[in-house]
């Protein structure tokens, strides 16, 4: 088993028309033993910028701390809100610096740019950025998520449709992944507000 599968996780980010959605499951396990049923893996960076950290939980927390530190420093030094692509480069660099002793985490960034255009970006555990016009997935359920998203995603979905497509993709994907699940949290980011939905899911 790969160490990235030790704790279990599932994260999905999807683009819509002037909106993005990012969601995650809530399970934290130690292999097959479930330890926590309320372990969120998507974190708010700025109002319209979220980062999802699927992978080994210890690295998820360490990376989140380091990202928060870097973003706070950026805020103070540059006196402007960090943009999604700058954050992506920043995190990518953090990961590539540890090229020969990596964090076991494959971050996903979702947000709206300065012009309120949707932005999603994924990367592997050593910081190789990969962008997509439609969706980015990660975690132990990523194979399932790929299938769900390929089927459900369509262009120019509004926030409500996008929320339902992403939520259904996530919930159905984790139902066939033993390592993730126990409900989900989905953030719907629009120019005016971010709506956070806590979803009902199987508890097994």
């Amino acid at each position: 088993m790969s160490i990235t599968q030790y704790n279990g996780s599932a994260i999905v980010a999807m683009t819509g028309k002037n909106c993005v959605v990012i969601g995650c499951d809530k399970r934290l396990g130690q292999q097959a033993l479930t330890v926590d049923m309320n372990f969120e893996k998507v974190f708010r960076v700025k109002d319209k910028l979220y980062v999802g950290l699927p992978g080994l939980a210890t690295d998820v927390q360490t990376l989140h701390d380091r990202i928060r530190y870097r973003v706070n420093m950026y805020d103070l030094e540059e006196e402007r809100a960090i943009q999604p692509d700058n954050l992506a480069h920043m995190i990518s660099n953090m990961l590539y610096q540890k090229r020969f002793g990596p964090y076991f985490c494959e971050p996903i960034i979702a947000g709206l740019t300065e012009k309120d255009e949707p932005y999603i970006m994924g990367m592997d555990l050593i910081g190789c950025l990969s962008s997509a016009p439609d969706f980015i997935v990660g975690g132990t359920a990523s194979d399932n998520l790929y299938g769900m998203c390929e089927a459900l995603w369509e262009p120019d979905l509004g926030p409500d449709d996008l929320f339902r497509s992403a939520s259904q993709a996530l919930l159905n994907a984790v139902d066939r992944d033993a390592m993730s699940g126990w409900g989900a949290v989905v953030h719907v980011i629009t120019p005016e507000k971010t709506e956070t939905y806590h979803l009902q899911g199987r508890q097994d």
């Binding site: 540059e78 692509d85 700058n86 992506a88 480069h89 920043m90 660099n93």
Partner: peptide, 8 residues
């Protein structure tokens, strides 16, 4: 190299 753009 760090931020993906030249500094302001």
């Amino acid at each position: 190299l760090d931020m993906g753009e030249y500094p302001p």
